[in-house]
Amino acid sequence: MSQNLAIAADEREYPVENPVIPYLRQERIPHIWCPGCGIGTTVNCFARALTESKRDLDQVAIVSGIGCTGRVAGYLNLDSFHTTHGRAIPFATGLKLSNPKLKVVVYSGDGDLFAIGGNHFVHAARRNMDLTVICVNNFTYGMTGGQLAPTTPIGASQTTMPYGNFENPFNLPFLADACGAVYVARWTVFHVKQLTRAMHEAISKPGFTFVEVLAPCPTLYSRRNKLGDGVDQVKYYKERSVVKHGAATKEVALGFQGDIVVGKFVDRERETWLDGMNAHFEKVLGPRYRRYGE
């Protein structure tokens, strides 16, 4: 009785359903992510970005690789594809080219997208394939237990770099910029409003758009490096982030617990692969060409 009353009181107090709920496959909750993990926050922002975009959600597909962030596809109530390790981008390329009406979003982790999948990222950006890539960067391999990632800052300890990392990590915005991405932004899970806006902009802009999100992995990265829990990492993001829209991407590399340059770094126009194909074939083949994708 008292419990029922408590629920009723709760419903009176919070009559509005969490706006993110319709975006989730409720039957798959609880999710697998650890307490303090930042991935859920990014999903929340993404759901809000979808709302703001006013897109027909039946025409949005999400593709993930393997890893903790790779599980995002499984929780979102969209057409969703959980593919193989590193290969979300080429799967998404095929999906988009086969059904060009779709908005295709690749949502995966730093190890998946930039180590095993690095070559695909480079080429999809070069082609300006019409995809949005969201990279949740937690500096580590979470699902396999905290190994070295291509983003691990120099000095950070990982199970496969037990004496501290001596390898140079990728500066992801610089890489995306150099390869031709038309939109490049970086935020952290502290910056939920800005992140939501960046995701909205990225999915609204045709072409290869890229958003890097820094997110804590308290279980593996933070604990191993004695950085406290998830909240401590978010505090670090808050204290050391510097907003620099339009910053030169080669200057936004990340050091271990150093300053974090965030903002929208690149926003430019380039013809997408599919538009380029149609325009080119129309020009060189004339009326013999059967225009594709409309």
Binding site: F81, F91, T93, L97
Partner: peptide, 9 residues
Amino acid sequence: IAVLGGAWG
């Protein structure tokens, strides 16, 4: 894998 994406498209 692009062709698998193509099939689901």
